[in-house]
Design a protein around this nucleic acid. Sequence first.
DNA 1: TTGGTTTATCGTTCATTGACGATAAACGAT
DNA 2: ATCGTTTATCGTCAATGAACGATAAACCAA
Lengths: 88, 88
Amino acid sequence: MKTEQLAKIFKALGHPTRIKIVEHIIQINTCVCGEIVNIFPFSQSTISQHLKILKESGIVCGEVEGPKTYFCVDKAVLEQFREYIKNL
Amino acid sequence: MKTEQLAKIFKALGHPTRIKIVEHIIQINTCVCGEIVNIFPFSQSTISQHLKILKESGIVCGEVEGPKTYFCVDKAVLEQFREYIKNL
DNA sequence: TTGGTTTATCGTTCATTGACGATAAACGAT
DNA sequence: ATCGTTTATCGTCAATGAACGATAAACCAA
């Protein structure tokens, strides 16, 4: 895994809200933006922006289904990430 | 490990140079600022700032010895961090 | 086809970051 | 006591980040 991509993932997780979002997505496997908006005290646009950052880092992926987008954690990327930390 | 501290560590590692600095410190166990300055194409003040951020996150600790500061990775914190990622 | 739901994007604002040079502070050696 | 070495901090500047409201886009249902 290249340093640049690692940095992107680290950076994406470098915000408390985004950490909690990822933890939540892992717990319930998959979820839509609106569900997260209901949990956190931030606006819809802010949450959408956080999800975008997570998606761009590669740790989360989103699947458009109708008007909704289902987000889930990319298990392959997470595993690569885990492996890096383990060998650090 | 609290979300806030995790975010600080993630954020500290969210920069390619700081990732490489940490990798380097782990490899050679301990090192001083000047040594890192010689490796990277950045000024002394920039490297010092990066080291400060790493130190403030808790993942790195520095020991002042005369005019030099010896930096090393806090193994306990790294282990806690590893454990978090593992259980994610 | 109109209306409601869901999400993404745009534009704005203020705060933070990353880089630099200059300078100060701490120390060892002469 | 002064000089060279090493590091930290200050001030600056441009770029990026985090939050928001408003709006657009995509879709389903009536």
